[in-house]
């Protein structure tokens, strides 16, 4: 009896391993040599695997039926159409996205991501498809006044982990000594941060303006200031380092979609100004 159980277990593992091996896709390898042929690879495979972090409406989220929806999602589908390939979206934590594209696990990242200098060392970015602004938000009736970004000094403040806003807080508030490091809070997801502000556990939230406005509408947060303090070039698609042909093609398509008003149309459809 126990022998059969053991054999069955071993068999399951063996079968699973086997099916895993047969499921192996043509290898998307790393390294500059391979990356220069990235576009050809994607076209040959007939699909592009795009990573996102689907907890950031109105850019990307999952609707009740399990579909990826939002501005970024509509945009990447429009881009896929122009490329003539199928778009496969892979949901991941925001923190894992850069590493995944670097290691070739995904072909590109579209996640309301800004092309910062730090990220640019790891991966390449397309031209921006949307310029961004940031918002400071507080609980309703907080009485706080933020007229310029530096007014946030000395207040407890939250941002999403790994975002440009978090970097800005570190550089401009913490490293300058304006805010003690223990008053800065890092959240895995923006909605957690918004709920903490609404509940009075932190005073301020710094994040992308449009998702902030969406959260504000749902939780009653007050937007104190909209600014372009961290706009280091707007939102771009991240691709593997050295994938020059892919970058050229995506840049061309994004420019085309900007010029013919498609992006404008998608923005409005998703409630973005």
């Amino acid at each position: 009896m126990k022998k059969q159980i053991l054999v069955a277990l071993l068999l399951i593992v063996a079968l699973l391993a086997l099916s895993a091996c047969t499921a192996v896709q043509p290898a998307g390898q790393t390294g500059a040599a391979a990356e220069s042929g990235k576009l050809a690879q994607i076209k040959a495979a007939g699909r592009i695997v795009v990573g996102t972090s689907a907890d950031y409406p109105p850019y990307e989220s999952i609707d009740a039926d399990g579909n990826f929806v939002g501005f970024d999602m509509d945009l990447i589908r429009a881009i896929g159409e122009k490329l003539g390939v199928e778009v496969e979206i892979q949901d991941m934590p925001f923190d894992s996205l850069i590493a995944s594209v670097q290691e070739g696990k995904i072909d590109a990242v579209i996640a309301a991501m800004q092309a910062t200098a730090e990220r640019d060392e790891q991966v390449d970015f397309t031209i921006p498809y949307r310029m961004t602004r940031d918002a400071f938000a507080a609980a309703p009736g907080s009485g706080l006044v933020i007229e310029k970004p530096e007014d946030a000094a000395g207040k407890s403040i939250g941002a999403q982990t790994g975002t440009v806003q978090e970097g800005w807080i570190q550089r401009n508030l913490v490293e300058t000594g304006l805010t003690p490091a223990d008053m800065v809070f890092s959240y895995e997801r923006a909605d957690q941060a918004a709920l903490d502000v609404a509940n009075g556990r932190i005073q301020l939230l710094l994040m992308d303006a449009e998702p902030a406005m969406e959260l504000a509408a749902q939780t009653g947060l007050e937007i104190l200031l909209i600014t372009e303090l961290t706009a280091e070039g707007g939102k771009s698609i991240a691709i593997p380092d050295g994938a020059t042909d892919l970058k050229a093609e995506l840049d061309r398509i994004i420019q085309e979609l900007l010029d013919d008003g498609t992006i404008q149309r998608i923005q409005e459809a998703n409630g973005l100004p």
Binding site: A54, D55, P57, S61, I62, D63, A64, M92, K105, R189
Partner: peptide, 16 residues
């Protein structure tokens, strides 16, 4: 690494 198990699905709902 991007596997949508129970907890991630709860996060997705919570975000929406």
């Amino acid at each position: 690494v991007g596997v949508p198990e129970i907890l991630r699905r709860a996060q997705q709902v919570s975000a929406r």
